[in-house]
């Protein structure tokens, strides 16, 4: 599997990642790091605890990380959730969070599949 195929599978933009990181080896390095990134777990925890402020912050962080790695699908889902949480008045919308989970799952699956073939 090529990195391009990995990005296609997760609904990301390989071209954008390439523009930022220049080489495949750098893209690969950062993409692999994403598997250890704690932001998604932190977001899940904050939502489970009903902490709206932290939920917003973690969603915001996840959006930023996804944007930087050009995980377009995840970025979009995280962005929607961030905007819903921004007023910090109601807890995370379950449907939007489900969208984030789905997009996150696609990203992780694609990376694992890429990793398995290496």
């Amino acid at each position: 599997m090529t990195l391009k195929e990995c990005y296609d599978r997760m609904n990301g933009s390989y071209e954008e990642a390439k523009g930022r990181l220049m080489t495949d080896s750098m893209i690969e390095r950062f993409v692999m790091r994403f598997l250890d990134d704690p932001t998604m777990d932190n977001l899940r925890k904050a939502i489970a605890q009903g902490d709206v402020a932290v939920s917003f912050r973690e969603a915001h962080t996840l959006k930023g990380v996804a944007a930087n790695l050009a995980f377009t699908g995840l970025q979009k889902a995280a962005s929607d959730l961030t905007e819903q949480l921004r007023p910090q008045q109601s807890p995370a919308d379950a449907e939007l969070m489900a969208g984030v989970e789905k997009a996150y799952g696609m990203v992780v699956d694609a990376i694992r599949a890429y990793q398995a073939e290496k």
């Binding site: 990181l21 950062f30 790091r33 994403f34 990134d37 932001t39 962080t61 930023g64 930087n68 790695l69």
Partner: peptide, 9 residues
């Protein structure tokens, strides 16, 4: 930045 990936990038 709180996200390590962002810092490293």
């Amino acid at each position: 930045d709180d996200a390590q990936i962002n810092r490293e990038l």
